[in-house]
């Protein structure tokens, strides 16, 4: 099923792969000599439709793992601070395979002490797998990741001011959740995009572009940002990838302080206040609230419409397919309304 991505399953590759269902600090995994593998990154581009699904994001990785549990050496399920579809599908993996599973809980109230204990528990789980697989620890990894994330944050901020392809930036930032399974390769990809941005002359946009922000879950269609661009909408902010690069730390204590602010795990007021700040800075003209079929984020829609005083378009995706005519029509009409 996974011909479309790199899975690191080769004889030469001795680094243990640990799946994650949502963001947890990649710094912990790489410091222990393991890699984190964001299972959601398997989904975009997948041709098979998942079975027994509500949200395709979770159902797709669940099917992939049930089909071939050898793809990962352990699984971290974010049980508190992420969606329940992922929690149930994660438990199904625990029930039906021999993959060791660890449940991770973000604090709803942002309690850093609580989160520190959760991070220590996560570190123990990763260390056990690393020991079992005789992985080589890498104490320098958190510092390297810190530098890479700083570069990512810079790219993210600059994309509002220049005309770099928002789809390229999105793909890079979304991959920060697991560093593409290879910190060095990811770091090079960041540098390449940064250099390309500085050196290349970019084509003129097709028409007057309107700056928009994508909030909610990341779009499951891999051409989404390109279609936005084609209809005249320039994505200058992607909420979830922004969280991936903003959170970090070189010690567990620093990570606890930073990840306690992970907005998706916190009350909606906390998330909305953070959003308002970024949206104002980036002079966003409209919000695209992207959700998935059967996604709890859809229920946030009436609150978002009350909280944010700028035009808002709600879209609901389903399977990982190219943007369809209905979604495109909505984007075109949104552009016209702006």
């Amino acid at each position: 099923m996974l011909n479309h991505i790199r899975t690191f399953r080769s004889e030469e590759d001795k680094v243990p792969s640990i799946g994650i269902t949502a963001i947890v600090p990649p710094e912990i995994f790489y410091a222990r000599g393991c890699r984190s593998v964001d299972l959601n990154n398997w989904v975009v581009g997948l041709e098979e439709a998942p079975s027994d699904k509500l949200c395709a994001w979770t159902a797709a990785w669940r099917d992939i793992l049930l089909d071939d549990p050898s793809l990962i050496d352990g699984l971290v399920v974010v049980a508190g601070g992420d969606c329940h579809n992922a929690l149930v599908d994660g438990q199904r993996i625990a029930h039906e395979t021999d993959i060791p599973v660890h449940y991770f809980f973000y604090p709803f109230d942002g309690d850093e002490g609580y989160l520190l204990r959760e991070l220590e528990g996560l570190d123990e789980f990763v260390a056990e797998i690393a020991q079992k697989k005789a992985a080589r620890p890498d104490d320098s990894a958190p510092n390297i990741i810190h530098q890479v994330k700083l570069r990512c944050c810079e790219l993210d901020r600059l994309r509002c001011k220049r005309d770099l392809d928002p789809g390229e930036v999105f793909k890079l930032l979304i991959a920060a959740s697991d560093m593409m399974g290879d910190v060095q390769a990811y770091s090079k990809a960041c540098d390449k995009l940064y250099q390309q941005w500085r050196l290349e002359k970019h084509p003129e946009p097709p028409k007057e572009l309107k700056p928009v922000a994508i909030i909610g879950v990341p779009p499951i269609m891999d051409d989404f940002h390109k279609v936005c661009w084609d209809v005249g909408l320039k994505v200058v902010f992607d909420e979830m990838p922004y969280e991936f690069v903003e959170r970090g730390g070189t010690t567990l204590e620093e990570m606890a302080t930073s990840y306690a602010k992970y907005t998706f795990a916190r009350p909606l007021e906390f998330r909305f206040e953070n959003l308002k700040e970024v949206i104002a800075k980036r002079e966003v003209a409209g919000l695209i609230h992207y959700t998935q079929y059967a996604c709890h984020h859809t229920l946030e829609d009436p609150l978002l419409r009350k909280e944010f005083d700028i035009p808002l378009l709600t879209l609901q995706g389903d399977l990982p397919r190219p943007v369809d005519r209905q979604i495109r029509l909505r984007l075109e009409a949104f552009y016209e309304s702006l």
Partner: peptide
Amino acid sequence: RKTDFKLNDK
């Protein structure tokens, strides 16, 4: 009133 719109889905 708000230049807003909804379309039926699926």
